[in-house]
Design a protein around this nucleic acid. Structure first.
Lengths: 140, 140
DNA sequence: ATGACACACGTTATATCGTTACGCAATGTG
DNA sequence: CACATTGCGTAACGATATAACGTGTGTCAT
């Protein structure tokens, strides 16, 4: 199991650069947006980005927003994918005007989702919860 | 408001064909899969499918699965987009093995999501809840 | 050491998903 | 009738994602 990184230290060069790009960004970035930001630093083709993203998502440092086909750095303070691990079960609140994304880890919600799956004998592997609309600032 | 269809009767020819394709299908279909199934019947290009899908989703006869980039016919018995309307707030349970999709309309979940949004003064417009894993049959 | 293997990476090409833009015909409304 | 609206057909393109292949580099059992 030496190939199981848990924190930023264990990232490869490309993974670190992609994570850096996402951390620096204000909001979510598409894979191609990441690619563009890293061209100066030697990135040339999509697979470089996608490979890094795959690992970062697996480890929990980055989340994929399905409804946006985009990615965000985990907002946990110094996140390293720990926390409520087992299943992530994070909800995202996404403003369609300013693109700001809020990450929410609500245990009541997690319980409900777990329950819904359990009732059907469904072996939950991954959950996607994304709430879209307008944030307070933008709906004012 | 004469342009607001509420049921299958009001669909145009293309919308009806796309809805038919989805209804006939066992599981979710991508837009291009729909296109392929309708080529015999005269469909030739993506916009024909996407335009029909846009309307069908708007009306609630069809749902988009964000995590699959695919579409399913609403499973409500003789669905016409009514029911808990206002916001849809439907959860989908998606088997990654057999691709079967179960539609769930859980009011506790809806309440919880509404609450999460409310706490942040977030004006909810659309929710995506997708649970992925293995259904009972497939995890046996 | 050396050969076998796994891993990260670079690169090209291709697959898949979705949209823009344009034109035309049918319909309905003043 | 003039004209707006709507649905439709088509071509071209843009955006997102993956396959496939090659290379170097480290580990490590032999």
């Amino acid at each position: 199991m030496s190939g199981t990184p848990v924190s930023i230290q264990d990232l490869t060069k490309n993974q670190a650069m992609v994570f850096g790009a996402l951390s620096t960004a204000e909001g979510p970035l598409s894979a191609y947006a990441i690619l563009d930001r890293l061209r100066d630093q030697g990135f040339r083709a999509p697979p470089q980005v996608y490979r890094a993203l795959e690992k970062l998502v697996e480890v929990g440092l980055v989340h994929r927003l399905e409804s946006l086909n985009a990615f965000v750095a985990c907002s946990h303070p110094a996140c390293s994918g720990q926390a409520t691990h087992g299943h992530e079960m994070i909800a995202f609140i996404i403003c369609e005007s300013c693109a700001k994304v809020t990450e929410i880890n609500d245990s009541a919600l997690a319980d409900q989702l777990t329950h819904l799956a359990r009732v059907q004998d469904f072996a939950l592997r991954k959950t996607t919860v994304e709430l879209r609309g307008l944030c307070r600032a933008c709906s004012a």
